[in-house]
Design a protein around this nucleic acid. Sequence first.
DNA 1: CTGAAAGCGCTTACAG
DNA 2: CTGAAAGCGCTTACAG
Lengths: 360, 360
Amino acid sequence: MSAGKRTPRRTPGIRDVAAAAGVSVTTVSHVLNDTPHTRTADETKIRVKEAAARLGYQPNRLARGLRTQASGMVGLVTEEIATTPHAGRIILGAQEEASRHNLTLAIINSQLNHAPEVGSREVQAFLDRQVDGLIYATVYHDVVVPPEELLSVPAVLIGARDIGGKIPSVMPDERGGAASVVEHLVAAGHRRIAFAATAIDVPATRGRLLGFRDGMLAAGLDPDEFVVEAEPEAAGGYAATHALLGAGRSSAARPTAVFCYNDRMAMGAYRAIAELGLAVPTDVSVVGFDNQDPIPTSLFPALTTVALPHYELGAAAVEAIIRLKTEGGADLPEASEPQLLSCPIVERGSVAAPVRGTAA
Amino acid sequence: MSAGKRTPRRTPGIRDVAAAAGVSVTTVSHVLNDTPHTRTADETKIRVKEAAARLGYQPNRLARGLRTQASGMVGLVTEEIATTPHAGRIILGAQEEASRHNLTLAIINSQLNHAPEVGSREVQAFLDRQVDGLIYATVYHDVVVPPEELLSVPAVLIGARDIGGKIPSVMPDERGGAASVVEHLVAAGHRRIAFAATAIDVPATRGRLLGFRDGMLAAGLDPDEFVVEAEPEAAGGYAATHALLGAGRSSAARPTAVFCYNDRMAMGAYRAIAELGLAVPTDVSVVGFDNQDPIPTSLFPALTTVALPHYELGAAAVEAIIRLKTEGGADLPEASEPQLLSCPIVERGSVAAPVRGTAA
DNA sequence: CTGAAAGCGCTTACAG
DNA sequence: CTGAAAGCGCTTACAG
């Protein structure tokens, strides 16, 4: 409609807007950015805005970034994202929180790294792009030794602590989540509660077992009576459950509930329970951990489990970045004390009161 | 060690390198970028490289991007990434392929959008960042109507076709994958093969059913005899399997294999089969689709299923972007014909020969 | 209330 | 073989 004589091939720049509005680029910049401490006549403002809208002007973020020394990007490096169930939700949480602050999230995957050293190639790639902040997400390490460059920009760790104590971190409160499961089971009337644990060396292993013990102790129960170890897979849960409920045990010596280290184990537990001719939750209650899609809702009855706050972890990480940027940084409390995000129980159908009341 | 009198607070720029090497920035740029059609004395090259290394010089990609009009970023907008199982693998494939080409992947999530219009806010956000290419990934639509701006840059769709036929796309060959399952089952000796289908309106539904029919027809079998519809969840697979194998049917009229629309349904099928006192795969073979972690390996016996090439989809999308950038674009064949990526069967333990040979 | 000018850190004709 | 200079598209003191 409002076509000039030739279609501008390039996308319009601030200069085009200035020309169209009959003002300087300075003025265009001020009105479009609402620069503080700047007065512009309302009539001028309107002219500028109209011109910008008419031309479909969109500021070039690269240019702005170069000038302001702020790219408006935050980089997320994830350690072997593909192997983490639901890493997608960490990314989503980080991305949406970033968007809320007008930031763009960029991603680089780091090879699974059994050494605790954070890949510095990945960090450097982001630094070259002048990211405003850096998030490093890991699942395999308690503690991580980040490359020195990481300190040159606001940074936060997900799921691990900085060995140097300089970089703040956010992590799931696995211990608290596990303790709350015991509490939940005790409230339902259980006293003989088993834990199907694992020996795999990841932070979650220790946290969940500790939480189980916290809960048992708090309820005045023996935390060691029904703990068995197995591999953290369905087969392990199957084996553990057979060991717990199988032949050797008299029914009065059997646990009435089994809390599994993860949902995959719970899946195996269901199968073992069915084989034993028992039913969930009537004969035995079971609880999982991870809320690992699609297990809990695909099991029958649906599995009560504990959710990992993946989305929240991602979002909290970028919130922390923002805080570091604005508040300055070095002296933030988070650096020393990791921020723990709670792991809520999601109740479904696998917990009920035990068949017969159990005496203390 | 080689410290000057004051630690440079800022990161070194090309000017610092030039000064350190005693040459012009032009020369530094040429040697560091290996600019073609340019001669530089070897001795000079060495001096420059040493100076760059000594200072730890890293070129500022923002500045380079502004100058070259190429940001070195490709943008991925995913539609509701979180709800797609394994969207993480699409991201991973795209990211790694991008890295191979020295590109960085940025991500924006788009709200799940039941209309086929692609969100133009997300696209615009990337355009503002001068991305070199744009990928739009969807799972809920066959065909999508992209905003006009999407054409202003090399773009490719994952999992959907452009209604305008201008944007190339890559998608999984669900139909071929389903057909190969039937072939696999026939080769194992099955002739009475059931399909637990669904009516949900997503592209996968039609493709898989079509593939099932292709396979049955190719084997000279009736494609309609054992098709039942159910919801695409464990409960649906359970119901469908009961309908297929349950009371009403004489054993000779029962299918010997059930191919489930997805792995969740297969999970329900296992449960129904166990309830019926039958065993997988001795009495009935079952095959899933999706290779949805952690189902296939958590089931006993492990589930034979069809894998979706998520990683490959992501990688192929950025490959297509690269091709569009170099080869020019508009006249590429992909634009009209989607690139189909094969969905391979992953054989595990849930298929065996049927108990008794079945006559034609 | 508005604008001319410098400059962010690079790359790239162009000249020598 | 090497360098001076322009310019990518913005923002921001500074001056008027």
